[in-house]
């Protein structure tokens, strides 16, 4: 439906952006009542904008999804931030710094998009910190070696991109526009990870073993990033009807597996799945599903690093309190003196 699934990422994002502009130019004969107007706009692939009427459940679903996405970007800075001071060269360090700064930026674009739905930044930060809202379970796994930075870029960012490119076509305007920005920047993230792994796998035997070990540990958690299988996914159907979501969890997971197999060949690294094979009839790969019980345990808080990630986030927030207070006081003082 959206052309070649394997078209380069940036082309897919550009085409989402073009379609957005084209759809906006189409005249729609909108229904007279509020629900009718909403339905017509969504059906015509146009965008719902902040001050438009929308069903309350649509608003709530979006707040939950965009907030979780924003929190993931912010928590996602931690596993990689862990390696900034130990990057193997100045070049790698500068790149990693830029990448982690991007994650902060992505978190901010997304918080800004969530705020257009009538929730405040303070509430969102609060809900992350007190655990009422979640972030992606993938960030509860540890980064044990430098190769993990490569595996995160290739697999975790790769999976995120497969998830996020369709979101550039989401029916809610501010979210779609934020995702276009995010996706354009993410492509550098995935490539830098791929390059790290490629360098390691073509280095010494120890370096290659380190790269393979990282891929072995990140493969299944990355597959789990797409969420539970379609049959168990509670929100999928409604989100698809609202065009918040464009593909099911299993469709996206399959697309990711098919992409990775070819790339693993170039990396000369093995995907840790003995049952991975091409299915001629389906035109797709058969593969082993991730452990969904583990996914549920990690989401509920029992992953290797849940506690550490949350403690770090709370500490960073409280340690920064004096900076926020100082900036506010300074602004107030200047405003007063200016009168």
């Amino acid at each position: 439906m959206y052309g070649n699934d394997f078209a380069p990422l940036l082309e897919q994002v550009d085409s989402a952006e073009r379609d957005l502009q084209q759809a906006a130019g189409r005249d729609v004969a909108a229904g007279a009542d509020l629900q009718g107007y909403f339905d017509t706009i969504v059906a015509a692939d146009q965008k719902i904008e902040p001050r438009d009427w929308m069903p309350e459940a649509y608003r709530k679903t979006l707040i939950r999804q965009i907030a979780q996405h924003a929190h993931s970007e912010i928590i996602g800075m931690q596993p990689e931030g862990n390696w900034i001071s130990r990057a193997p060269s100045l070049k790698r360090k500068a790149i990693l710094l830029a990448k982690v700064q991007d994650e902060a930026g992505h978190g901010l674009y997304l918080y800004a998009a969530a705020e257009t739905l009538g929730i405040s930044r303070d509430e969102l930060v609060e809900m992350l910190i007190d655990g009422r809202q979640k972030y992606s379970s993938i960030f509860n796994y540890p980064t044990l070696t430098w190769a993990d930075v490569g595996a995160i870029g290739w697999l975790v960012d790769g999976a995120a991109i497969v998830n996020q490119v369709p979101l550039c076509r989401c029916s809610y305007g501010p979210y779609a526009r934020a995702m276009i920005r995010v996706c354009k920047e993410e492509s550098f993230h995935q490539r830098q990870g791929f390059e790290i792994l490629h360098t390691l796998s073509h280095g010494t035997p120890e370096q290659k073993a380190m790269a393979q070990d990282a891929v072995d540990r990140w493969w299944y958690p990355s597959l789990a990033m797409f969420g539970p299988p379609d049959g168990d996914s509670t929100h999928s159907e409604r989100s698809m009807a609202w065009k918040i979501k464009r593909f099911t969890n299993d469709e996206l997971r399959q697309r990711f597996v098919d992409m990775c197999v070819q790339q693993a060949g170039i990396l000369d690294l093995r995907i840790p799945d003995p049952d991975l094979r091409w299915d001629e009839a389906r035109g797709q790969h058969d593969y082993t599903q991730p452990d969904y019980d583990e996914l549920m345990r990690v989401i509920k808080g029992d992953g290797p690093c849940n506690q550490e990630r949350m403690e770090h986030r709370r500490r960073a927030h409280s340690d920064g309190a004096w900076v926020r207070a100082a900036a506010r006081t300074y602004a107030e003082k200047r405003a007063k003196n200016a009168v």
Partner: peptide, 21 residues
């Protein structure tokens, strides 16, 4: 897009970091 800042000057600096990297 949008952002939070205590005053306009900080908002400009934050906007540079968030939206023009």
């Amino acid at each position: 897009g949008s952002l939070h800042a205590p005053d306009a000057e900080m908002a400009l600096r934050n906007a540079r970091d968030v939206y023009t990297r």
